[in-house]
């Protein structure tokens, strides 16, 4: 092999090496690009993974919030129901308060009426107290108190308000509403309380004054105050009270007056004998 051929062969081999080296360099470049691409993909995947994780967490949070909203909604409904219950109780308490207040007022009126009726043994004072009860507690504007004269069997007006007592006739037992009430011992209440002028033969209410079953008189109400359109429950209670307690108060005061008179007479007689 000549020198020239040797040189040519070396050159050829160097060129081959260069070719291989170039190819190696190109391959390395490709590997670097691929590596870059893969790294980019990895970053993208990591980002997607992170986003997916965030979305999942967000979904969990949404679910948790939905659950909280549902719980709060339930709680709200319970609170609303409790408010309704409390309001109903409140209304119930208010109604009960009004009832108790009315009851209290009624009891106060009954207590005062009873207390006053038995606070004196003076006949005129008793009649005055009965009149005051009718005016101030019942609201009677025109009324009369009739007492039964057991000897003659007649009813005579002894006290009253709004009507001159001289205008009242003397009723026999069974005569008119007053006489009928005195005979039967049953209370009378007019069905309609109108604002028509009062009529002494047509009372709005007529109550027997009774000691047990013995009628000693009647109480007749002819007209109520204008602001009092009808009798209330407490009025019927007061009438019931008056029927019994007014009768005993009148009876006791009459007995007391008579005994006082007799005592004075006897005392005078004794003084006459002993002096």
């Amino acid at each position: 092999m000549t020198e020239k051929e040797k040189q040519s062969k070396v050159t050829q081999r160097a060129e081959d090496f260069l070719q291989v080296f170039k190819k190696g360099a190109e391959f390395t470049q490709q590997l670097l690009r691929e590596n870059e691409r893969l790294r980019f993909q990895l970053v993208q995947l990591e980002e997607q993974g992170r986003l997916a994780s965030c979305a999942e967490q967000a979904m969990r949070e949404v679910e948790s919030l939905k659950s909280q909203v549902a719980d709060l909604e339930r709680e709200k409904q319970e609170i609303l129901q409790r408010i309704d219950r409390v309001e109903a109780e409140n209304i119930d308490f208010a109604n009960r308060y009004v009832e108790i207040e009315a009851e209290n007022s009624s009891l106060a009126n009954l207590y005062i009426a009873t207390y006053q009726l038995h606070s004196t043994l003076d006949f005129r004072d008793v009649l005055k107290i009965i009149s005051e009860i009718i005016i101030n507690l019942i609201g009677g504007e025109e009324f009369a108190i009739f007492l039964l004269d057991e000897n003659s069997g007649t009813l005579q007006a002894m006290a009253g308000e709004g009507i001159d007592l001289r205008h009242f006739p003397v009723y026999s037992l069974g005569e008119g509403i007053a006489g009928g009430v005195a005979r039967s011992g049953e209370s009378f209440f007019a069905e309609v309380l109108d604002a028509a002028p009062s009529d002494i033969d047509a009372p709005l209410a007529c109550i027997p004054l009774k000691i047990k079953d013995r009628v000693i008189g009647v109480l007749a109400v002819y007209k109520l105050f204008v602001q009092k359109p009808r009798f209330g429950d407490i009025d019927y209670e007061l009438f019931t009270l008056l029927a019994g307690h007014a009768a005993t108060a009148i009876f006791a005061s009459k007995l007391y007056s008579e005994s006082e008179r007799k005592l004075t007479t006897i005392q005078g007689f004794l003084d006459l004998l002993t002096k």
């Binding site: 106060a108 009126n109 207590y111 005062i112 009426a113 207390y115 006053q116 606070s119 107290i129 005051e132 009860i133 101030n136 507690l137």
Partner: peptide
């Protein structure tokens, strides 16, 4: 002057 009214007002 009425003892009944007076008592009623006082009690209230």
């Amino acid at each position: 002057d009425s003892s009944i009214m007076r008592q009623l007002l006082v009690m209230a």
